[in-house]
Simulated assay, not measured.
Amino acid sequence: MKYLVMVQGTQADYEGMRGKASEHAATWTEEELQAMYAYMGAINDDLAESGEIIDAQGLAEPARTRLVSRTPDGGTEITDGPYSETKELMAGYWVLECESLERVTEIAERVSRCPGPKGQTGHPVVIRPIMDGAGDIC
């Protein structure tokens, strides 16, 4: 089965990675950033070796996001970021093909232990099965 594994983050998290601390996120040192990249790289290497990884990407900060939606009158509303500091959005993802929900949960748990600055509480990791067809809805 294919799964989308999403790491959530906030605009404040991206600011903290650039050295701007706030009440919502700690400041990252260069060593902490390198440790995070190495940790995630090791996960990607392991998933490539096991053949479970289909795709994985980090995403740009929420401030660079654009939301396109329909209005009640049938028009289109276009909103640019940034979003509220407390609003969590997808910060990165993996598309994986795993034997079971238990296996993808093991991977998500490993992702959730990614190192960061002292005092960081970690970020939620969401698992969503990818539907193969309309039969998956029922």
Rank of each mutant, 00 (worst) to 15 (best):
D136K: 11
T86H: 10
K20I: 15
T86P: 00
P117Y: 05
K20L: 13
E32K: 02
S100E: 05
G9M: 07
C138A: 12
E49K: 15
V125H: 02
A25Q: 09
L101Q: 03
W94D: 08
T65H: 02
A35Y: 00
A134G: 12
Q57L: 05
P124T: 09
N44R: 04
R103I: 08
W94Q: 08
A108K: 01
L96R: 00
P124F: 02
K2P: 02
L67T: 14
T121D: 12
M131S: 15
A12I: 03
G51Y: 10
D46M: 11
G9D: 06
A91D: 00
E49A: 15
R103Y: 07
G122F: 00
H123W: 12
G51I: 04
L33P: 05
L67M: 09
M90E: 02
E31I: 09
T29Q: 13
V5W: 01
W28T: 05
Q11R: 13
T65C: 11
V125F: 04
G19Q: 07
L33R: 07
G92T: 04
M40F: 14
Q11G: 11
R113Y: 02
D132G: 15
G74V: 10
V111I: 15
G51S: 08
R64Q: 11
T76W: 01
A134K: 14
S69P: 02
Q120H: 13
A60N: 06
K2W: 01
L89A: 01
E15H: 10
P62G: 01
V68M: 10
S84M: 09
W28K: 03
M36Y: 07
T121F: 06
P117D: 10
R110W: 03
W94A: 04
K87A: 10
G122S: 04
L33F: 09
R128T: 13
M36K: 05
G19E: 13
S112D: 05
Q34S: 09
A21T: 11
E88A: 00
I78T: 14
G9E: 03
M1P: 07
A26S: 15
D45P: 00
E30K: 15
A91S: 10
A91R: 01
D46P: 08
E102S: 12
P129S: 09
V111L: 10
M131R: 10
C138D: 14
V7F: 02
E97F: 02
P117R: 08
T121C: 04
M17D: 11
I107F: 04
A42W: 01
D13V: 01
E15N: 13
D45T: 14
G51K: 06
V104T: 07
I130C: 14
M1V: 08
R128D: 08
D46F: 06
G74L: 08
T29G: 11
V111E: 04
I130T: 09
V7H: 01
E85L: 10
R70C: 04
R113A: 09
A91I: 03
L33V: 12
I137L: 09
Y93L: 03
A21R: 11
A48I: 15
R103M: 06
E49P: 01
